[in-house]
Design a binder for these strands. Structure first.
Lengths: 144, 144
DNA sequence: GGACAGTACATGCACGTGCATTCAATGCAA
DNA sequence: TTGCATTGAATGCACGTGCATGTACTGTCC
């Protein structure tokens, strides 16, 4: 009565389970470490990183929330609250967008950039630890 | 002042972002679809699947919660409550473990197996959709 | 036997998330 | 101009999660 998966389906399931395992390992460790040492969640760090990248691109260029949204995998409401937390922590600034007054532009504060720079080594270290080729990942080329 | 990532680090970050994107796409869609049509969350389905596999292995073999825990990526408390939900929905049964009365053994009910069998095609379909080679995944071999 | 550390699971609590809704601002049409 | 659908973001709410703790049971050492 229980139908079996086709080989293609079995492959997908295996791929999915490995993805789940890697994601869980990395996300869990990232959240714990970044949280303990820098008061940042995984997504908080991710947002800071996008802001740093955005600012580095056009110097004083500030990102709109609507630009940020697609790059972090969060609902609109979760992103809104995450930004509120970052603002309360003094890491970003919310300002009205001049060209479209519905929008909000985000700017990284000095403290925000510093926090990011401090946290980045740990972030990379965790990625190295969790993605760097254990967990039975056959055929993963680290440099590719 | 902002130090750049080494090539190895940049690769890790790219790998991490792709993993995040795939995980978000699949997990979000799975949760929504399974939830809407079968009243199951992603992790609920995962647990049912482990129970089916466990039962198929030794027929009437019932899994202990402590055996289940390492395979699903949840905290012990989250798993406990998830099982409570499944039990309330009539999909699994909790019973005291004879050999170690601290432990709980889980058995899949008929309704639980049916629900799983019904949900599985949708689960596979979502995996196919989200893992089956879009999202700029260069070099992924679908059958591998 | 009794005391005690360790294990298995449940529960109180705080928190982050998604959904639905709300409010403000925009663009377009009449 | 007014009216209306649409978009950007914030908020009420319910819910799932992790951490810390509690409770019950096991095994060990004395």
């Amino acid at each position: 009565m229980a139908e079996l998966d086709s080989p293609a389906e079995a492959g997908l399931v295996a791929q999915w389970r490995e993805l789940l395992a890697r994601h869980a390992a990395a996300a869990c460790l990232l959240d714990r470490e970044l949280g303990d040492r820098f008061g940042l969640g995984m997504s908080e760090f991710e947002v800071l990183e996008r802001l740093v990248e955005g600012c580095d691109a056009g110097d004083g260029h500030a990102l709109r929330v609507s630009e940020l949204a697609p790059t972090v995998h969060l609902s609109q409401s979760a992103l809104s609250r995450l930004i509120a937390r970052l603002e309360k922590a003094g890491l970003v600034t919310r300002a009205m967008c001049e060209s479209d007054r519905r929008g909000i532009v985000l700017t990284l504060t000095e403290a925000g950039r510093e926090r990011y720079e401090q946290a980045r080594p740990l972030h990379r270290e965790v990625l190295e630890l969790t993605l760097g080729g254990e967990l039975g990942n056959a055929g993963e080329v680290p440099s590719a």
